[in-house]
Each structure stands twice: as structure tokens, then as C-alpha cells.
């Protein structure tokens, strides 16, 4: 089957790629573009390790086809910091030791950023429910939730 030509903007850069019609956006990001910060934990939309935003909407990139991304704007973990300046969420994750193995961290950061853009002052419960689609097996979530709440506080100024 012939490949599809896709034009996107990823983390602010114009990127074009060819993909098989059945290839997922996650596979394109990783295998073709080598943006490996987006992780595959399940491939079925259950773990959130592949979280990205697509036209501002938080999605599991394993559930999106590469071909669906035509003319869209994509943000991944690689676009979260600004040069050498970390996003406040990234800094708070370090300060609070909110990661152990770190493999779920990119997805959780992307998801948390998306939350704070919609709701700059979430309650603990709101953070927990928003992140319920992002599995972490190491931390028990405690330090993650604290880091998100602390980052929100700092970002509100």
C-alpha cells in the first residue's frame, strides 16, 4: 500500500513525514522522527505514557493514526522546556522527587500541563482525576500530586 504524505507542526517546527495508513502517530513520533520522549507502555490507551497534545487536546498518541495528524499542531515532552529553562512542572517534579524510574514522567508532565492550562488552581482531587489515565507503578502518585499542586501554585504567581 502506498504511503500517505503528512504535514504537521511539532513543538513549533514544520515537520513532514510519510506513513503507512495503519501506522500510529506514536510509532511515527518514535520510529520515524525519533522523538522517543513519548513512551509506549500499552499501545491500547490505558497507561497514558504516550500522552501528547494534538491541536491543544490531550490524547494518547497510540490511539491516533499518523495520517490523522495532517495539518495539526502537536506538542510532545520534547517541546516542554524552553532552551535551558525547565517548565515549572518539570522543575517541581525534580524538587519533589516525583519520579523513580521516570518512564511515565513525560506522559504525566504533558497531561499535567494540559490540566493547568485549563484549570490553573486545581484541587488535589481534580489533579488525581485528571491524571487517572496516566499510570505510574513506582511512586504511589503521592509526590506526583504534590509536585503538580506546587507547580500550579508557582505558576499562579
Amino acid at each position: 500500500m502506498s504511503q500517505v504524505h503528512i504535514k504537521t507542526k511539532i513543538n513549533g517546527d514544520n515537520i513532514e513525514f510519510l506513513c503507512d495508513p495503519e501506522e500510529t502517530l506514536l510509532d511515527i513520533l518514535r520510529d520515524k522522527l525519533h522523538l522517543t520522549g513519548t513512551k509506549e507502555g500499552c499501545g491500547t490507551g490505558d497507561c497514558g505514557a504516550c500522552s501528547i497534545t494534538l491541536d491543544g487536546k490531550l490524547v494518547c498518541s497510540c490511539l491516533v493514526l499518523g495520517a490523522e495528524a495532517d495539518n495539526s499542531e502537536i506538542s510532545t515532552i520534547e517541546g516542554m522546556s524552553n532552551g535551558e529553562k525547565l517548565h515549572p512542572l518539570q522543575q517541581k517534579f525534580l524538587d519533589h522527587a516525583a519520579l523513580q524510574c521516570g518512564v511515565c514522567t513525560p506522559g504525566i508532565l504533558v497531561a499535567a500541563k494540559s490540566l493547568l492550562e485549563k484549570n490553573p488552581d486545581p484541587t488535589e482531587s481534580e489533579v488525581r482525576y485528571w491524571l487517572a489515565g496516566n499510570l505510574c507503578r513506582c511512586t504511589g502518585y503521592d509526590k506526583i500530586i504534590k509536585a503538580v499542586l506546587d507547580a500550579a501554585k508557582e505558576m499562579r504567581g
Binding site: 518514535r30 522517543t36 520534547e78 516542554m80 525547565l86 519520579l99
Partner: peptide, 19 residues
């Protein structure tokens, strides 16, 4: 103190098995 591999892990640079 902050962990030495921290920044790699919050920016997506850290290389895991499939990376």
C-alpha cells in the same frame, strides 16, 4: 539533592530499552 538523571527524565531525553 536533585537526582543526577533528573533533567534527562523530565525532558524526555533519557534512553530506555526501546529508545
Amino acid at each position: 539533592p536533585p537526582r543526577p538523571d533528573g533533567i534527562e527524565k523530565v525532558t524526555g531525553k533519557a534512553q530506555y530499552g526501546a529508545d
